[in-house]
Design a binder for these strands. Structure first.
Lengths: 341, 341
DNA sequence: TTGTATGCGTTATCAG
DNA sequence: CTGATAACGCATACAA
């Protein structure tokens, strides 16, 4: 079984050159030989050596995703889903997915390794922060990349993100329209750009509604279920100033919030209204609680789109839409009611 | 800035050969030049081209992990944690981690691509099934691999796994010792090897205790929280034959089970005893429910160990322990009590 | 201790 | 339409 281009060529009594061109679909090879070569290759189970290919072509045929563990050490299920979307797009194009797990300390060096060594043809930068040195680094290189999220200054690089301010604005509209005035806000760490933007949206909406923010009503929920749970318990402990509605800026925290409410015996939708941005994960038994949500395109779809953008960039094609801002949608649920009087 | 070995050599007035050897820590190069080269390389930010290196050396300097999405489409947080462990071991060794997301349909082809194209030097096969064609395929190749889990026949390949029968045996001992006789069992899909083995352990333990298995007490919980939740609801609906204890074979299902019990107002530990294998994930607010568990080494540690084994295999070193069977430990909790009389 | 020549498997250039 | 020849960037016998 020929494992080699040379051997395959010898077998076919052709030159390696011709075989190579036949396999790569060049126009200047007769249809007859193309067929013959293709069959022989498949029969022999021939796979070109990526290393040699890369060396000759100068491309890595790989895309990198750097996963910062500290940000989310337990593993956000949405992250794997996003990677699934990326893979689905890249698979047919013959690209590999390099997953680099980086501690905060070594993160930048990881990027340097990938870029300098041309280990990848492009990168997807997830978990963007308000001020993000990874983006700063990539700006100075020729390496194509897509931000999965924006940064504070983001007009000069391509990204895909959700309209985060709109997320909170939309949610706040629904709440104020129902008469809520004491609206609590549970958020992710504010160095993450999406969290900061959603938080801004909350503040602006409060101001627009003529409401004063009670500092006790704004709590960080960390990245996980547990954080949301504890933040909510603190809110419930407020005697006189207990909020009548809670807005949660991410799905995992949302689970914790709903848990805490159920456990405390609070009637969701009457005693306490709840909106969770991104909605609850479908794998939770709470899913049937029918919690109102701000819905985004799925992580899978986002991954697919980003991979598609990245491929265009790698091929040197211009991006018709270099900055993709997905608009959120309000999804009603039984967790929403009029403010108690 | 030299991006080339040749350029770097020219800069140093040395031959590329010498520079190469200096960088790769060969013995036959003077300490003085080694220093000089190392500094110059760092100063110039030189990174050797992996493609060229791979072609010359014949190694990929990469390890592959194939993630089957169907098995667990929402993304098990433990999976990312395991990858983190793999990366931590591999990082210093200069290996990349290739993550291939595979649909069941294309799974085998993915393996072929990785192996035939020598895209990786070794593989980690996760989610092993009782009868696993991926393992069968790899057996026929020279590609080193480690099973993250066993298969029905597994004496001829290296793996890391938990003693699954011991998991259920341990748990069952605790339950029968407390007088439980109606012990329900919620399990993952039985085509997964770990699920089958744990199930076997359950059956054996029941027999050993002289108990008869009630078919209504054995339910599949799927892979997620939701499945565990629904299975538990079905158990609670049993009027006369309601179990007094529930054993759950995986962590995510366990969350659902505890949820269902709390929601139904069941007193955990008195009305119903619960043991969850792997314990509840720490990011759940239920963590303080203090559920009894069968504890395993962390996914991170497992990943690290497997990567370590794989490196040895790649380097041709013999494995002193080719089959690593981790012993589980019983961890008591308030979820365990005497059987109600 | 260092340098020269050659090869890794593929693609690209340039003739036929 | 096809074939010889030279890269791609690095590592390694072998020679000096």
């Amino acid at each position: 079984m020929p494992t080699d281009l040379k051997q395959l060529a010898a077998l076919l009594k052709l030159s390696p050159t011709t075989v190579s061109r036949a396999l790569n679909g060049y126009s200047d090879v007769s249809e007859a030989t193309r067929q013959r070569v293709a069959e022989a290759a498949k029969a022999a189970g021939y796979e070109p050596s990526p290393a040699a290919r890369r060396l000759a072509i100068g491309r890595a045929d790989a895309v990198g995703i750097v996963y910062p563990v500290e940000a989310d050490f337990m593993g956000n299920p949405l992250f794997l889903e996003m990677i699934g979307g990326v893979s689905d797009r890249l698979d047919g194009a013959g690209y590999d997915v390099l997953l680099a797990v980086a501690r905060k300390k070594t993160e930048l060096r990881t990027y340097e390794r990938l870029v300098r060594g041309r280990r990848v043809d492009g990168l997807i930068v997830a978990h963007t922060r308000v001020k993000d040195e990874r983006i700063d680094f990539l700006r100075g290189t020729q390496m194509p990349f897509i931000g999965y999220g924006r940064t504070s200054e983001c007009d000069d690089f391509p990204w895909l993100d959700f309209d985060n301010e709109a997320c909170t604005r939309l949610a706040m509209n629904e709440l104020t329209a129902r008469g809520h005035r004491r609206i609590a806000y549970i958020h992710s760490p504010l160095n993450l750009n999406f969290a900061q933007q959603r938080y801004d949206g909350y503040l602006k909406a409060m101001a627009a509604a003529g409401l004063v923010v009670n500092p006790e009503h704004v709590l960080t929920g960390g990245h996980d279920r547990r954080g949301g749970y504890e933040a909510t318990k603190r809110l419930l402990a407020l005697a006189d100033t207990r909020p009548t509605a809670i807005l949660v800026d991410s799905n995992l925290c949302g689970v914790g919030t709903v848990r805490a409410l159920l456990q405390a015996g609070i009637a969701i939708g009457t005693e306490m209204s709840v909106i969770v941005i991104d909605g609850l994960p479908v794998d939770t038994p709470l899913y049937d609680q029918d919690i109102a949500a701000i819905a985004q395109p799925t992580a899978h779809a986002s991954g697919w789109t980003m991979a598609d953008m990245l491929l265009k960039l790698i091929e040197g094609k211009p991006l018709d839409e270099p900055r993709v801002l997905k608009q959120p949608q309000f999804v009603n649920g039984r967790s929403l009611g009029l403010a108690p009087t």
